[in-house]
C-alpha cells in the first residue's frame, strides 16, 4: 500500500494551533446564556485580532474561517442558519479588519480594530437576516441593541488584545 503524506508547513501548524484556541473560546461562549440571541461577547475574536497583529492578515483570516467551520461542526450547526450567520459575520468582520489595518498604526491600535470588526460582524449578520431570513423591516427594532453590544464588547476585546500584545513585548 502506498503511503500518502500531506506536506504540512510550519504555517499550517501554527494556524491549526491558533484556530484550536479560537474554537475553545467559541465553545466556552456557546454555553454562556445570553439575554438576547445574537448578543455575545465574541471572545474568539480576540484570537483573530491577536493573530492579525502577530502573523498578518492571511493567518488571521484562516484562523477565523476555520474557527467558524469547526465550531459549527462541534455544535451541530453546520450549514444551519446559525452557521451561515456566523460565517457572514466573520467574513464582513475580516473585511472590516482588512480595511482598518491600513489605518496609521500610531493612532489606531487594537481597540479601533476590535470595535470596527465588531460592527462589521453585526452588519454582516443583520444584512443576511434582512435579505434572507426575515425579509422585512421588523428587524430594524433590534439594530440599536446589537450596535451597543458590538461597541461595548468590541472595546473590551480590544483592550484584552492590547494587553496580550503589550505584555508579550
Amino acid at each position: 500500500m502506498k503511503n500518502t503524506h500531506i506536506q504540512t508547513t510550519v504555517d499550517d501548524h501554527r494556524i491549526a494551533k491558533l484556530a484550536a484556541f479560537a474554537i475553545l473560546l467559541h465553545m466556552v461562549e456557546a454555553v454562556i446564556p445570553s439575554p438576547l440571541p445574537g448578543v455575545k461577547p465574541g471572545i474568539a475574536n480576540i484570537v483573530t485580532l491577536y493573530v492579525l497583529y502577530q502573523y498578518g492578515f492571511a493567518t488571521a483570516a484562516w484562523v477565523s474561517i476555520l474557527r467558524v467551520f469547526a465550531s459549527s461542526l462541534l455544535l451541530g450547526q453546520f450549514l444551519s442558519p446559525t452557521f451561515i450567520l456566523s460565517l457572514s459575520g466573520a467574513v464582513v468582520s475580516l473585511a472590516a479588519l482588512w480595511l482598518a489595518m491600513h489605518l496609521p498604526k500610531r493612532y489606531f491600535g487594537p481597540v479601533s480594530l476590535s470595535i470596527l470588526a465588531a460592527f462589521g460582524h453585526i452588519a454582516g449578520q443583520l444584512l443576511l437576516v434582512r435579505f434572507w431570513l426575515i425579509p422585512h423591516a421588523g428587524v430594524a427594532y433590534l439594530i440599536p441593541v446589537f450596535a451597543s453590544a458590538a461597541l461595548f464588547f468590541g472595546l473590551i476585546n480590544g483592550l484584552i488584545t492590547a494587553k496580550l500584545l503589550y505584555n508579550k513585548r
Binding site: Y107, S112, I115, L151, A162
Partner: peptide, 25 residues
C-alpha cells in the same frame, strides 16, 4: 488599562461608534 491602551485614533473610533449607536437608538 484604558489610558494605557486606547490611542488617540481609538478614542475617535470609540466616539464615532457611540454617536452611531445613539443615532440608531
Amino acid at each position: 488599562l484604558i489610558t494605557q491602551h486606547v490611542l488617540s485614533g481609538d478614542w475617535l473610533v470609540l466616539i464615532a461608534g457611540l454617536l452611531c449607536v445613539l443615532y440608531l437608538f
